[in-house]
Amino acid sequence: MSEQTLEIPCNIPADAVNPVEPFLRMDRMPHIWCPGCGIGTTVNCFTRALIDSHANLDKVAIVSGIGCTGRVAGYANLDSFHTTHGRAIPFATGLKLANPELQVVVYSGDGDLFAIGGNHFIHAARRNMDLKVICVNNLTYAMTGGQTAPTTPSKVISATNPYGVFEPAFNLVALAEAAGASYVARWTTFHVKQLSRSMEEVLRKKGFCFIEVISPCPTLYQRRNKMGDGLDTMKYYKQASKIRHGAPTAECDLTKSGEIVVGKFVDRDRPSYFEMLNSQMTETLGDRYAEPEVMCEQC
């Protein structure tokens, strides 16, 4: 590299940092994710959403379960919790109940949130617990070798279905809407701007919010199904995605290589868990009810 090329570029100061660096634990880099994996892209979108929403980062907590996406919490420069398999949502529920001023984000994968943790997802949505759930859906169990997940579409080849998946898959956005989520959106890792904007939107919205992000696993899912590498998947996402805001979620099933309906499907206001609690107790107890003070300096 000549001295001339060093001088020419765009006036980047010597102490310049990537704008997302302050949101990451740089002392934990490099991360564990494979080349072509989409999780890092979603984290980049998330940091952009944090910047754009002007969130007080000391009051944002992130909770992950287990798996590739489960490692996100460890890289975010926030109060962060890497919990057990499937239990990020109940942990986050406790955190939110104890300290309602926290903005609690659950960041985990499809296997974690919808197989072992599926029960907690529907109940938190039913309660309209004030959690922002971001699910990176790579359609497989990636960390453990590409086994069939409840999200793996029919006909897909996986480690546990070498002759093709025959079980129907969960439609996550339909499940979230049916269970009571206040906000439901789906994007792919190709839609970085839209994803970032959706994340910013849920950081400002109260109640149970759910964003599904379709993301490639080139190491296992794409390779085993001869779908190319990370770049080929971006081309597929670009070509196959149809933005349909407000689309009926029941029509948003995913198939192995068909159309991917993306967009914001649900944005409604339901009373939050805290509102329902306070309203019921006030109705029953009147003046005798005092909102619980769970935070105490000496406890």
Binding site: P90, F91, T93, L97
Partner: peptide, 22 residues
């Protein structure tokens, strides 16, 4: 909470949020 798996970790989320829990 919906089950014992949830209850036994919800209390821990509450503890890290500053509460005492059982």
């Amino acid at each position: 909470m919906e089950d014992e798996l949830a209850a036994s970790i919800t209390i821990q989320g509450a503890v890290w949020g500053g509460a005492k829990a059982f």
